[in-house]
Amino acid sequence: DVEPGKFYKGVVTRIEKYGAFINLNEQVRGLLRPRDMISLRAENLNVGDEIIVQAIDVRPEKREIDFKYIP
């Protein structure tokens, strides 16, 4: 289970104008929005990159997770 405030290692699987999709594993995926990329620009991300993200909002009923990148 993903808990708000905890840090996780994930892999960038898709990049859109509104953010990057980060997979923690095959069943868990969330969104890293540009406003939550402190000191990281979306254009510096590539599909396949491994990054550490913090879960900031977890909505299990919608199967949605928002992440924040903190260097």
Rank of each mutant, 00 (worst) to 15 (best):
residue 70 I to T: 09
residue 59 R to Y: 05
residue 23 N to D: 10
residue 39 S to V: 10
residue 8 Y to F: 03
residue 28 V to D: 07
residue 37 M to A: 06
residue 9 K to L: 11
residue 57 D to P: 02
residue 38 I to P: 08
residue 59 R to V: 03
residue 27 Q to G: 13
residue 17 K to W: 15
residue 47 V to F: 02
residue 38 I to S: 11
residue 19 G to E: 05
residue 65 I to K: 03
residue 29 R to A: 11
residue 54 Q to F: 12
residue 37 M to N: 07
residue 67 F to N: 03
residue 9 K to A: 07
residue 44 N to S: 14
residue 5 G to T: 03
residue 70 I to Q: 08
residue 59 R to K: 05
residue 32 L to F: 04
residue 21 F to Y: 14
residue 37 M to G: 06
residue 55 A to C: 15
residue 29 R to M: 14
residue 31 L to W: 07
residue 54 Q to E: 04
residue 4 P to T: 12
residue 44 N to K: 11
residue 60 P to T: 09
residue 55 A to E: 01
residue 69 Y to E: 11
residue 6 K to H: 10
residue 71 P to E: 11
residue 37 M to L: 07
residue 20 A to D: 01
residue 31 L to V: 07
residue 66 D to S: 13
residue 12 V to I: 14
residue 42 A to G: 11
residue 41 R to E: 10
residue 70 I to P: 03
residue 26 E to A: 14
residue 33 R to I: 09
residue 22 I to P: 00
residue 6 K to E: 06
residue 38 I to W: 07
residue 45 L to S: 00
residue 68 K to L: 09
residue 13 T to A: 07
residue 65 I to F: 07
residue 39 S to W: 11
residue 13 T to Y: 07
residue 29 R to N: 08
residue 8 Y to W: 02
residue 34 P to E: 12
residue 6 K to A: 08
residue 1 D to L: 15
residue 26 E to K: 15
residue 8 Y to N: 00
residue 44 N to T: 13
residue 4 P to E: 09
residue 56 I to H: 06
residue 38 I to N: 13
residue 24 L to E: 01
residue 48 G to C: 08
residue 1 D to S: 14
residue 68 K to P: 03
residue 50 E to D: 08
residue 12 V to H: 00
residue 57 D to A: 15
residue 3 E to N: 06
residue 50 E to R: 12
residue 19 G to T: 06
residue 37 M to C: 09
residue 66 D to M: 13
residue 67 F to A: 02
residue 9 K to G: 01
residue 20 A to L: 12
residue 47 V to E: 05
residue 27 Q to S: 13
residue 62 K to A: 11
residue 58 V to R: 04
residue 40 L to E: 04
residue 46 N to K: 15
residue 62 K to S: 10
residue 5 G to P: 04
residue 61 E to F: 07
residue 51 I to G: 00
residue 40 L to M: 10
residue 61 E to N: 11
residue 17 K to G: 07
residue 50 E to F: 15
residue 45 L to Q: 00
residue 59 R to A: 03
residue 52 I to S: 03
residue 61 E to T: 08
residue 10 G to M: 05
residue 23 N to I: 10
residue 59 R to W: 05
residue 54 Q to R: 04
residue 68 K to C: 11
residue 36 D to Q: 07
residue 53 V to T: 00
residue 48 G to T: 01
residue 62 K to E: 08
residue 40 L to G: 06
residue 11 V to N: 02
residue 26 E to T: 12
residue 60 P to Q: 07
residue 32 L to Y: 03
residue 39 S to T: 11
residue 29 R to K: 10
residue 25 N to P: 03
residue 36 D to A: 05
residue 11 V to G: 01
residue 51 I to Q: 00
residue 42 A to P: 15
residue 37 M to T: 05
residue 54 Q to S: 04
residue 32 L to G: 03
residue 26 E to G: 12
residue 16 E to Q: 06
residue 44 N to A: 13
residue 48 G to S: 01
residue 58 V to S: 06
residue 19 G to V: 07
residue 37 M to W: 06
residue 59 R to L: 03
residue 66 D to C: 12
residue 45 L to Y: 03
residue 6 K to C: 13
residue 29 R to P: 04
residue 22 I to A: 01
residue 8 Y to M: 01
residue 21 F to K: 01
residue 41 R to V: 10
residue 15 I to Q: 01
residue 2 V to C: 07
residue 18 Y to M: 07
residue 66 D to R: 14
residue 9 K to V: 11
residue 13 T to L: 04
residue 4 P to C: 12
residue 43 E to Q: 11
residue 25 N to A: 08
residue 12 V to C: 07
residue 57 D to H: 15
residue 36 D to S: 05
residue 52 I to D: 02
residue 40 L to I: 11
residue 50 E to C: 15
residue 17 K to T: 12
residue 64 E to R: 11
residue 45 L to D: 00
residue 14 R to N: 04
residue 44 N to C: 15
residue 1 D to P: 12
residue 10 G to A: 10
residue 9 K to M: 09
residue 64 E to Q: 14
residue 22 I to E: 00
residue 35 R to D: 10
residue 58 V to E: 02
residue 58 V to L: 04
residue 38 I to H: 14
residue 71 P to M: 12
residue 1 D to V: 14
residue 57 D to G: 14
residue 2 V to I: 15
residue 8 Y to I: 01
residue 41 R to A: 10
residue 15 I to G: 00
residue 26 E to Q: 12
residue 15 I to H: 02
residue 7 F to R: 05
residue 22 I to W: 02
residue 12 V to N: 00
residue 34 P to S: 14
residue 55 A to K: 02
residue 71 P to A: 13
residue 13 T to F: 04
residue 18 Y to D: 05
residue 58 V to D: 01
residue 60 P to G: 07
residue 67 F to P: 02
residue 36 D to E: 06
residue 33 R to C: 10
residue 60 P to R: 08
residue 51 I to P: 00
residue 3 E to S: 11
residue 66 D to Y: 14
residue 53 V to A: 01
residue 62 K to C: 11
residue 44 N to I: 10
residue 11 V to R: 10
residue 13 T to C: 08
residue 28 V to M: 07
residue 19 G to D: 02
residue 42 A to K: 15
residue 32 L to T: 02
residue 2 V to Q: 02
residue 6 K to N: 08
residue 30 G to R: 02
residue 58 V to T: 05
residue 18 Y to C: 08
residue 2 V to A: 03
residue 46 N to F: 12
residue 3 E to K: 14
residue 40 L to T: 06
residue 25 N to V: 06
residue 40 L to V: 08
residue 62 K to I: 08
residue 64 E to L: 13
residue 35 R to I: 09
residue 3 E to A: 09
residue 62 K to F: 09
residue 62 K to Q: 11
residue 67 F to K: 02
residue 58 V to Y: 09
residue 9 K to S: 07
residue 68 K to A: 15
residue 28 V to R: 02
residue 70 I to H: 09
residue 41 R to K: 14
residue 64 E to W: 15
residue 53 V to Y: 01
residue 44 N to Q: 15
residue 21 F to H: 05
residue 6 K to G: 07
residue 34 P to H: 13
residue 5 G to Y: 07
residue 12 V to F: 01
residue 45 L to H: 04
residue 32 L to C: 08
residue 29 R to Q: 15
residue 21 F to C: 08
residue 68 K to G: 11
residue 7 F to I: 08
residue 8 Y to V: 01
residue 3 E to T: 13
residue 5 G to L: 07
residue 23 N to P: 00
residue 21 F to L: 10
residue 67 F to R: 02
residue 4 P to K: 15
residue 31 L to E: 04
residue 70 I to V: 14
residue 14 R to W: 06
residue 7 F to W: 10
residue 63 R to W: 09
residue 52 I to V: 12
residue 28 V to A: 04
residue 17 K to I: 11
residue 28 V to Y: 08
residue 37 M to D: 04
residue 70 I to G: 05
residue 43 E to W: 13
residue 55 A to F: 05
residue 24 L to S: 01
residue 8 Y to T: 01
residue 15 I to T: 02
residue 1 D to Y: 14
